[in-house]
Each structure stands twice: as C-alpha cells, then as structure tokens.
Design a protein around this nucleic acid. Structure first.
Lengths: 144, 144
DNA sequence: TCCTTGGTGTCAGGTTCCTTACATTGATGA
DNA sequence: TCATCAATGTAAGGAACCTGACACCAAGGA
C-alpha cells in the first residue's frame, strides 16, 4: 500500500478532514476555556433542556461513562446543572446555566467561523452534496 | 440552534461520519487485537520502513508523545522493532516485524471491508467527488 | 405477587490523545 | 572554537474516549 493509494481512500480522507477540523476547532475554542466535547454537550443541551445524562450521551454518540467525564468538567465550571431529584426512574434532568448559555453563543460563533474557513471555495451545491454523501456514509455504517 | 439545523452543518456530518467509521473499524479490528491507531501506524510503517518515531508521528498527524503511547503497545506486542542505535542524531529507525506485517495484511482486509460498506450505493464519480471535497476541506483548514 | 427486563447512574481500569517541560544531539553562524 | 538552534526522545499529568461490572428503579408478564 503506497502513500498515494492511501490518500485516495475515502476512509483516509474522512479521518483526515475530521482530524483537521477537530484540531482547528480546539484551537479556536481554547481562549474560551472549553473543548469540542464540551461544546457538543452544550449545543445538545440547548436544543433539548432537561434531557437525562444517558439520553445526552446518545445524542452525542458517546457512552454514558464518557459523557460523565465531560459533564463533570461542565458542572465544576458552572456551565450546566444536574437536578438533585430524579424525574422518573433514576434519570436526573440536566440543564444549561445562564453562564453555559452565554458561553455556548460565543463558542458557536467561533465554530461557525472555522466551518466557513473549511468550506472556502466550495459552492452551495457542492456543500449540499458533501453533506448528503457523508450522511449516506454514516447511515450505511450504522445499519447493523 | 435546532436539531435539524445542526444536522445540515457540514462540520457536524464530517464528525458524525468519522465517528461512525472509527467505531465500525474498531469493532472489525477487535478480533485481531489491534486498534485503529495501531493500524494507522503499521500502515505508515509499511510504506516507509526505518522511519523515525517523530517522522512517523507527523505522518499520522499526532504528536511524538501520542505516538509513543501507541508504539509502546506495538512493541510489547512484538509488531514493531525500534533500533537500539540511532542512525543520525537521536532518531532511531522503526520497522515492522514479520508478525506486524502479517497482522497488517489481515487488518487491511478488515478495514477495506468496512470502507466498502460505508460507500454502498455511492457510484465511482461521487466517491471521487467525496475524496476531492474532503481533501479541499482538510487543506483549507491546514493553511495557517 | 414476584421476577425479569430495560433504562439509568456509577466505579474501576485501560487507551489514545494532548500540553508542558527537559535532556540530548547534530548543524549552523558569530 | 563556541554558542545557539532545531530536531528528537522522554517524562508527567490531564482530558476524553472505551469496556466491564454492579446497583437501582420502573414497568410488565408469568
């Protein structure tokens, strides 16, 4: 397997693009004091306030255990709040604090900026096609 | 930011596709006893035998320190060998062992299989376009 | 009623990545 | 010659992911 061959493999480019995107986003978020993982959790939480920790994990496509690591950081930073009492069963609602919502707005501006830089020189039709192709890829892989 | 909006963002789909690909590859490689990170190192090593640890890290787009973690596992599993004596400077050549080369061939079959599953229903022209678009994205992000 | 099942929270341990920091070594310029 | 300087290796510690395992709770079926 030569280097040129590897670079023409879609799997390699998917990984490469995500790696570059992730690193660029982390750099952009650093001054705000949060990471991509934390941003993803805040974003999901803004869309679905009061969601449980396990449901939040599913939305972020990580395990409950991984989410606990991130949530711990967010809690100690005062960006999210977890209810003391469970709603139903053992599930305790998680919500954004005011500070969390404020930081999310700032982070979102930073992320959109990186995304625009990533898409420079790609027209609307190609952007839509890229989203469609990637969606197909993800769905193909998630069929078990 | 509603859920539907988030899902139409290219950045989200790049992350989503890579996450699905990564998890599918890890599942496929598990029986072989190696991870995606280890597979990536073996693949680069097959293409450039005798490369130094730092150069290998650059090829895999991680830091020298990250690569040391992976390399430690590969060494203790007997899949790679690091020369005792440095060639030039402090750089010590790293090479695949026979066992490492054998395992790489098996792993490569598994990864290609996952990649084909990912690309189901996407024709040759669209696959090429996907690679081109992702390459453009990665290059845009790596311009500093 | 009991108990089985599925969803949830949590602990422990391991892997892969990062940043920060420091020692070593070969090359380069004053 | 000698003083940087860049590249390399290495160590320590933290962040974010994983698997495996266990306890708790609600809802249903035997």
């Amino acid at each position: 397997m030569s280097q040129a061959d590897v670079r023409n493999r879609p799997g390699y480019q998917v990984k490469r693009a995500q790696q570059a995107l992730h690193q660029a986003c982390e750099r952009q978020l650093r001054p705000l004091g949060i990471s991509m993982s934390k941003y993803a959790v805040l974003l999901a939480l803004a869309d679905e306030p009061g969601i449980s920790s396990a449901a939040l994990a599913r939305r972020c496509f990580v395990t409950r255990q991984s989410l606990q690591d991130v949530l711990g950081g967010l809690r100690s930073a005062g960006l999210v709040a977890v209810a003391e009492q469970a709603g139903t069963g053992r599930a305790r609602p998680v919500t954004l604090t005011d500070e969390g919502a404020r930081l999310l707005r700032e982070a979102d501006r930073a992320i959109v900026e990186v995304e625009n830089r990533m898409l420079a020189g790609i027209d609307r039709a190609d952007r839509r096609r890229l989203v469609e192709l990637l969606t197909t890829c993800a769905e193909n892989l998630n069929e078990d």
